[in-house]
Design a protein around this nucleic acid. Structure first.
Lengths: 229, 229
DNA sequence: ACAAAAGTGTTGAACGTACACCCATGC
DNA sequence: GCATGGGTGTACGTTCAACACTTTTGT
């Protein structure tokens, strides 16, 4: 059943830069294209926006369909409308970025019909379309935002050590942080809950575990508090 | 000549929140709608994206057509895709915000076929569609961005006094700033060019005039400098 | 001379930065 | 007992915030 309009319309899609974190790297989730153009190339998960769903819903649906991911942190990034970015026809894409706990999702991502895999963000294969620009955009946004919004916790397991937390910031911001200053700063924000637990099965002194106290954070925000690393 | 597609497509538009500054207020440029829905209501300038233009080009074209404005500072804001935001059909809009020197454009804006006028941002009439949300979004973005990017100069005449500059920040940020601290801070950034000129025709001591030195600013950015008010 | 806004410095508090050693645990 | 990472405090410099009076100019 075809659809007809008085004026030509661009196609509208959503694309997602999904970030995950492991011990050493920030990673991006890519899927391998089955069809032309760019058949066989790696690309961002994404697809067409349906008439009965918001942009956010479209992004989540595509993510679910193509990678199995659900309930992730997801935000809109930028809308890309270069005229010839898709060789077939005019396609405008609303890009998003998502943050996931890599440990939870490592397996699922590869179980879909199409091939899906994690790649280190600084060692990506050639990507389809302008997707490398979009990844770059997502990375810059993440680097900017992680410093004044507590979104980095989305990349960590619910319980984490201060060292893990520091490592996360170091990997994202691509610079070393001073251990003592970092701990002083983070603890002074008073948004972490000390769980009175320690790491298990480590070959050295076990670190204390903490949890991001979202309740407390929201309360402090309401009182004029400003998160900033 | 109708256009037909295999799947339904949302209409795609651009909308612009155009900010201007006068002595007392931050203002927004609105146009009065001629047709239903919301006939007679005030709305943001905007319109459909053509197939042969980027989003930025579409926003500038609509701005030119509806308000006469050209060569303004323009950035993308957010893309709004709520399913029922337009009662007629699905319309996704890529919103933008623009900053203009009000003094340059006061007259032109009202000369178009459709009625255009400036309104104080904190005293807007009822707006069409979800345009009040979009204005709110634009205002928050401006408030955030003006503190770490030198975009505020786009609202001032090329030559301005430090008092004007301070006033601009006070109006946008909606709080008073300390005169001495403000001057110290701004001058220490070393991105203003002292013009060795003073205001004319004022009924009191005339203020020195400065100009934003974009060349110098870019150089300093390259050297790792960080603008922050 | 008066009204109106321009212009100017200092001080204390808070914060950021640099830096090195002992501690607990598993092997 | 040794290797590995966990955990801690101080001193200095920089930045921020609070604060009031003199100067210039036009009427």
């Amino acid at each position: 059943m075809p659809f007809t309009y008085a004026y030509a319309r661009p196609a509208l899609t959503v694309d997602c830069v999904v970030f995950g974190l492991d011990d050493a790297d920030l990673k991006v989730l890519l899927i391998q294209r089955g069809i032309e153009p760019f058949a066989g190339r790696w690309a961002l998960p994404g697809g067409f926006v349906h008439l009965d769903e918001t942009l956010d819903q479209a992004a989540r649906r595509e993510l679910q369909e193509e990678t199995g991911l659900t309930k992730v942190f997801l935000e809109q990034l930028y809308t890309v409308g270069e005229v010839a970015r898709d060789p077939r026809e005019r396609v405008v894409t609303v890009t998003h970025y998502a943050l996931v706990r890599l440990s939870d999702h490592q397996v699922q991502a590869a179980t879909d019909a199409r091939n899906a895999a994690w790649f280190a963000v600084d060692d990506l294969p050639p990507l389809a379309f302008d997707h490398d620009d979009i990844v770059e955009l997502g990375l810059r946004r993440l680097q900017g935002k992680v410093r004044y919004q507590p979104i980095g916790f989305e990349l960590l397991p619910p319980k984490f050590s201060l060292t893990q937390l520091q490592r996360m910031y170091e990997i994202i911001l691509e610079r070393d942080l001073d251990k003592r200053n970092f701990r002083k700063k983070v603890l002074s924000l008073d948004i972490l809950q000390d769980l009175d637990e320690v790491e298990q099965d480590v070959a050295h002194r076990a670190a204390r575990l903490y949890r991001f106290d979202e309740r407390k954070y929201r309360q402090k925000i309401k009182d004029g508090f400003n998160f900033e690393l």
